[in-house]
């Protein structure tokens, strides 16, 4: 019984904090090879603060795009800079908050629970939907406004 209890306890124990630096860089969606995410550092791009009534988030920027929809990483720059596809992100404990950007809509919050974050793997969950990503090497796109 005790062993069962211990097993249950341990199996239900998930990490509560992750190394933010593992997020930096390009990630490829394991379910859609044309879908990429990129998390920028504070030195690569601006930082931002999102203040909700309940909490304030200190964020840096990132973006994602889906090449199966004939979207290119280059589309996120120029007039697309900090528009659709961009988000402000904040990793706090196991919560990855993504505040989606647009021109009509700003800072729409989408809160993900981080299940796994290593230098190679990322697993996040929202509304019972799990997304997994694998770290990829890509030539960093210059941040052009």
């Amino acid at each position: 019984m005790a062993f069962a209890a211990i097993a249950i306890i341990f199996s239900s124990c998930e990490p509560t904090s992750f190394n933010e630096t593992y997020l930096y860089g390009y990630w490829q969606d394991d379910n859609n090879a044309d879908h990429y995410k990129r998390f920028l550092t504070s030195s690569e791009d601006d930082t931002a603060v999102v203040a909700l009534k309940s909490q304030t988030y200190n964020c840096t920027f990132g973006y994602d795009w889906d090449e199966s929809e004939q979207t290119e990483e280059d589309d996120l720059f120029g007039t697309g800079y900090h528009g659709i596809g961009w988000y402000k992100w904040n990793l706090s404990a196991s919560t990855l908050a993504l505040f989606e950007q647009g021109e009509k809509t700003k800072d729409l919050p989408y809160l993900y629970k981080v299940k796994k974050l290593t230098s190679k793997q990322l697993q996040i969950v929202r509304n019972n939907v799990t997304e997994t990503y694998t770290k990829v090497d890509r030539t960093p796109h210059p941040i052009t406004k």
Binding site: W65, E69, T71, I84
Partner: peptide
């Protein structure tokens, strides 16, 4: 409704770019 998205040349929706309220 306030929405924005990107479209293809055939004016098809790029779902991953759909944002709105």
């Amino acid at each position: 409704i306030a929405a924005e998205t990107f479209l293809t040349a055939e004016y098809k929706l790029k779902p991953s770019t759909l944002r709105g309220a």
